Amino acid sequence: MIDVYSWATPNGHKVHIMLEETGLPYTVHGVDIGAGDQFTAGFLAISPNNKIPAIVDSEGPKTVDGKAFSLFESGAILIYLAEKTGRFLPADPAARYATLQWLMFQMGSIGPMLGQTHHFRVYAPEPIEYAINRYTNEARRLYGVMDTQLGKTAYLAGNDYTIADIASFPWTRSWKNQGIELDDFPNVKRWHEEIATRPAVLRGVEVLADARQPLMDDKAKEVLFGATQYAKH
């Protein structure tokens, strides 16, 4: 059994979708990041960077200290689950590394840059024109990179659906908040709309969705963006 410690965010949904796609049995534990659950000692023991998601696999590899196998960082979790099930990460070396490079593209560019776009367009206490323009323009550039690739192949890493798509799709669900018009990126739109209809994806994006509040209050913003985030835990 896999225990998933997560929240209804793009990074959380990556793992929710992967678990639904693979059919692995799991139990989800909500980590309310607006309330500060990510700073509890129990969660920090499995995710020292205080970020969701993290997993504990009671049937995972043996650890040196004899504890249950745990893993943090959503990209690492996707690779682990792909290797555990033999799905969504090709065995062929060329296809495997094509998948991993687009997964790293998501981890290094799509996630961080679109996350900053969300912050300055939606959550910042006051509008900062330079930051809004800088990250909105970068979001458009990244959508352009995906659009060019998806004009050549059905999915990001080729003609098969992989963990690269599972990682990137949740971030494109909030395209409006990123200042994006999907009609400007027809290949991304085709890809996005196709993945959005997959039964496992429909189930995955509903995990913990009812628990998350759509708008954060001042306390939640302080926890996520203020002194609490930067205090030693």
Rank of each mutant, 00 (worst) to 15 (best):
E129D: 14
A167I: 06
D57L: 04
G115H: 12
H192P: 04
Y155H: 15
N133T: 12
V205K: 05
L208I: 09
V188A: 00
F72D: 00
Q101E: 15
I17E: 01
A35H: 07
A35S: 11
M104D: 08
E20C: 03
A82R: 03
I46P: 11
V56R: 14
I195N: 08
E21N: 04
M113E: 05
K232P: 00
Q229A: 15
Y5D: 04
A41H: 08
I128L: 14
I195P: 06
K62H: 09
R190S: 05
W102K: 03
F185P: 01
D218C: 04
L71M: 13
T63Y: 00
P199L: 11
D165F: 04
Y26E: 05
E138I: 12
P112H: 12
F88E: 03
E129V: 13
Y97D: 03
Q106A: 07
I163V: 14
D218S: 15
P125K: 12
T9W: 11
P48D: 09
E126L: 09
L156I: 10
L150E: 04
V64Y: 09
A82W: 00
M18Y: 08
F169G: 03
A95T: 05
G144A: 11
N159I: 01
L19F: 03
R134D: 08
W191Y: 05
P112A: 10
S47V: 05
L78G: 05
